[in-house]
Design a protein around this nucleic acid. Sequence first.
DNA 1: GCAGTATCAACTTG
DNA 2: CCAAGTTGATACTG
Length: 680
Amino acid sequence: MGSLIPILDLNNLPESAAGTTPNTTISAVSMKVPKIEPKLEPFDEPLDTHLPQLPPEPFISTPTPNSLTNSQINPFSDQNHTPVSDSSAAPSDQENVYSEFHRISELFRTAFAKGLQSIGDGEVEVLDPDARAIVPVPQETQISEAVVARRKYPKRSSELVRVTDLNIEDQRYFRDVVRKTRMLYDSIRILTVAAEEKRNPGNGKRVRGDLQAASALRDRGLWLNRDKRIVGSIPGVYVGDLFFFRMELCVVGLHGQVQAGIDYLPASQSSNHEPIATSIIVSGGYEDDEDAGDVIIYTGHGGQDKFNKQCAHQKLEGGNLALERSMHYGIEVRVIRGIKCQGGISHKVYVYDGLYRIFDCWFDVGKSGFGVYKFKLLRMEGQGEMGSAILKFAASLRASPLSVRQSGYLSLDISNKKENVPVFLFNDIDSDQDPMYYEYLAATVFPTQVFHQSGKGTGCDCVDGCFGNCFCALKNGGEFAYDDNGCLLRGKPVVFECGPFCHCPPTCRNRVTQKGMRNRLEVFRSRETGWGVRSLDLIHAGAFICEYTGVILTREMAQIFAMNGDTLVYPHRFSDRWTEWGDLSQIYPDYVRPTYPSIPPLDFAMDVSKMRNVACYMSHSSTPNVMVQFVLYDHNNLMFPHLMLFAMENIPPMRELSLDYGVATVSEADEWTGKLAICN
DNA sequence: GCAGTATCAACTTG
DNA sequence: CCAAGTTGATACTG
């Protein structure tokens, strides 16, 4: 009786991101849970006969403390593990443990009696579709404001589903939903912090942008995956994806607990009255954790005081029980690792490391001497490389590239020190060395007339860095384009940075892109995309990456160049991805994206046939992680802005950077090549 | 049994 | 080390 569970309902997806729903139906989600032989020795007491074919279940017996042996004290008895009756635990504690087990066992006895009829011949119907909790819509009577407030945010669903076999189109759709939601989250987070800073400059107390952004999205029903509890991977979230805030994990639906490390479907909502774990965060907060990557010994939660010191025995309830039940049914859990990192916008980064299965669990005496539950998790096969491992790998590459990779490097800096940071060139798959043959161009070269046409230079008079309403802020429409970390607040037709006519120092916050690259990039060869670019550092969403450089050609010059057959880049073809960055129209219906300062359509081409920089090697994608933002600083000629590249999402190290080069429409092509042809 | 309320735990952030 | 802050689970109440 393999159980089926309903299909993921596309119609119920929040309108959040994403244009249209794909018209294909998503494959049915089958929650066929493989039977796993329990490793546990059954207790002597026989199982109730009305629970057919139930795997041996130790919880059902209720031994008295006096009759317990060490191995029986431990419900997940294993000779290798220290029994709790170890001398380090005081006798009174030991008794507590006994009574605790007594209590749990009772609890289970009743739970099993009530709800386990949905379990049979080894396949577990975790969900009974017909018995699915239907959230009733109560008649509006007299209800308190608190209730109204609560109703606005419906409870998390109790419907447990697994999403499998998404086709490419669906995958792209969900990725886009996640991408847009995260962009929105980051925009709100950055903007609220910036707004508060503007209102209250130098205030020691900082507003929690992470929380504000989350509630702004929640208020509008934009949290993802609340209508289903997803077991297994979350559509649109890839192994290796990076997050900087716990709240963002909640928004995406990867992990629904703000602080707790174990997320689970609570027993009260489960169809068989047993809790089921869905995800955990391995964050190093429990001293008894042992993390070896593919194998994790994870400590359950509870028993800690305010200072995260173990001060009491853990209990087999809540998340701990859920993990045990997930093990029992062989249900996989998502694993997210929290890794300390210096610098950046947060002191911790959360990496989605994929799915694990729980293979063992036992009650142990922790380093503190108190009883803790431990779970042994093994990473499932066939998943992408672990994000946390890639982070480590990238760190070692940064430290000493040649000792990590003996061969493959064609250059340790193709920029020849023209950039702040080296640009590596790596090819370990064929003999192509093409990028070696170009002169590295760190900044775009404009025709001299560009500077003449821009007229008398104007700048601000700030002496000590720019604040508030200086001239340059006004040029940008009254606000600076960047936050304190140098992240782009929102995309604009063009950004004015401070320049040579300003009196502010080079350290001014309004000089982000002219300060140059901050991340170590690597041009690399791949079978799929030819040459590509990736970063050895993780790049924050909104961060400046590098310029797209070339030698600027006016239309007239371009015609001559094109006759030589040189390949030219036409900047007006880049898709206006900047419009997506900081677009709050989903939050404020009357939101209009910035149109000021407006610029005329670009009318120039770029020659990259002899001189170019890293950007030239970025691949095209229709779901890019990098976008173009036009920036002016060394001249004021609106016709000829710099093409500056910013990250549209948090980009993990070693992940390929991609740009939306746009598609040349027929008319565009005509416009250029047509005229060029005439010229010919 | 259920809806509303109160309480509390939780590997946060700054 | 602590305060502010949020969610979800659960126990309790009528």
